[in-house]
């Protein structure tokens, strides 16, 4: 599994980029996309939605499963990756780049540091 160490991770398999101007990008990990199989559809949140950490706000569907995506941090949705509507396969092909899901303006940037780092996440994923 590919787990970039510049990112932080949630136990529910989302990755989170380092805050820039209070904004983070969120996607699902390479491990998660591999477990799901071919992604066929993504249900994205409305821009402007305010979420608490742990709120389900998106759904990633493969042919035979559907997984909720949870907000790894509290904040407000400021942008979603609309290109996934036409090309959901980006999540499989480039989970950390073209396959990102949404951007959050986080309430507390310090909370990012408390998420799992790459090593800790890999340990979680291996026992999952």
């Amino acid at each position: 599994m590919h787990t970039p160490d510049t990112l932080r991770y949630a136990r529910s398999h989302e990755w989170v980029s380092a805050p820039e101007d209070g904004i983070v990008t969120v996607g699902i990990s390479d491990f998660a996309q591999d477990q799901l199989g071919d992604v066929v559809f993504v249900e994205l949140p409305d821009v402007g939605r305010k979420v608490a950490a742990g709120d389900a706000l998106a759904v990633v569907e493969s042919v035979k499963t559907a997984s909720d995506i949870y907000a790894p941090l509290a904040g407000e949705v400021v942008e979603v990756n609309a290109s996934l509507e036409e090309a959901p396969e980006a999540i499989n092909e480039a989970p950390y780049e073209g396959g990102w899901l949404f951007k959050l303006r986080v309430d507390d940037t310090a909370a990012w540091d408390e998420l799992l780092d790459a090593t800790a996440y890999e340990a979680v994923a291996e026992t999952d």
Partner: peptide, 13 residues
């Protein structure tokens, strides 16, 4: 197709 909408996959959702 589009079975992920359905009860056998989504259950309570």
């Amino acid at each position: 197709t589009l079975q992920a909408r359905e009860q056998h996959i989504r259950r309570s959702k």
